[in-house]
Design a protein around this nucleic acid. Sequence first.
DNA 1: AAAGTCCACAACCGCGGTTGT
DNA 2: TACAACCGCGGTTGTGGACTT
Length: 335
Amino acid sequence: MEVKGRVSNSPSTIVQSDDEMDLRRGPWTVDEDLALINYIANHGEGRWNSLARSAGLKRTGKSCRLRWLNYLRPDVRRGNITLEEQLLILELHGRWGNRWSKIAQYLPGRTDNEIKNYWRTRVQKHAKQLKCDVNSKQFKDAMRYLWMPRLVERIQAAAAATTAAAAVRSPTASASATTTITTNNNITYNYSNNNNLNNSFEVHSGEMMLSPAIMNNNFGGSQSYTPENSSTGASSDSFGTQVSPVSELAQDYYNNVTVSNSNSNNNPNPDYYQQAQDQLSFLDCITSPSGLFSQQLDFHSMEQNTPWIQSNGDASNGFWNVENLLLFQQLTDNI
DNA sequence: AAAGTCCACAACCGCGGTTGT
DNA sequence: TACAACCGCGGTTGTGGACTT
C-alpha cells in the first residue's frame, strides 16, 4: 500500500487535553493508518469520536474522519486532475463558488480538499499573476471565454487524436468524434473538429460541447456517474452506506444536459485518459494556436480596471510574454 | 553542493448545523 | 426546550520535496 504525504518519520505532537487523554497531532504514522483501516474494515465508519477511542487511536474523531475520507478511503483517486475534471471544476465553481464538497460530488473519487487545493494552487495563482481577484468579473470572463474553451479544445484534440489512431487500426471506424453537450448555463461552446485535427470553435450561449468522457462522467469507467448513483463522492456522507443528497441545482445540472455524440464508439480509448493527464494552465489557454473566438469579450473594459495588458507593455511578470501579449491584443482588436 | 524559494497537499482549526438526551 | 456532543464544511497553516540561484 502506497503511503505518502505527511506520513513521515517526523514525530507527531502530543497534546494534553482537558480529560488528561493525550492526543496526537500532525502527520499520521503507518501504524495509525493500519489501525484505522483495520477498524473501519471490521466495524464500518461513522461515529468518529468513539471510533477513534475504540480503535485505540490517540486522535480526535475529526482527525480520523479527515484521514479516512481524504486519504485512506480505497476509492480516493490520486494523481493529476484531468482536463475533464479541470473543466468540470471551473464550470461548477462558476455555478456554486467555494462549495467544495458539492463540487466534489461530481468528481468521483476526488475529495473536496483536493479540489480546494487545486483551486488555490492553480486557479488562484493565475488570478494573482494577472493582479486581479479570482472572483472578479474580469477573471471569470477570462476563465469562461478563454480557459474553458481551450480546455474543450484540448479535450477534443486528444479525442480526435485517439479517433485518428483508432481509424488507422480499423479503417471502418467512425470518422468523426464530435460530441455535443448542451447545458442550461449561459455559455455555449460550439465546437467542431474533424480527423485532420483542424479544430475551430465558437462560443455562443446555451450549449457547451465536451468530450465523451466528461459527458458520460465516467472518467475512464464505463458506467455513467451522477451523485445519485455514487458512493464515492467526497461529501461527508458515509462511504458506501448512504447516498449523498442531491440539491435541486445539482439535479438541474444533469437534467438539462443533452448529448449528441456522433462518434459510434462511446467508450473513449483508454489511451485518451493518459493523453489528457497534462494540466492545462491559463497560459496554455491564451496561447491557443487555433482558438477562434467569436464571442464578444470586453477586454477593453478589463484593461481599464485591471492591468491585463499593462499600459507600458511590461511583460516582465513572467506571464505576459510578447507572444501572449500580441495574441491577447489581437483578440482585443477583433472585438 | 548548498542555500533559498516555490509549490503541492496533508492536516488542523473554527464555525455552524444536526442529533441525541 | 435547552444543552452538549458530534459532524461536516471551508479556510488556513505547516511541511517536505522540487526547483532555482
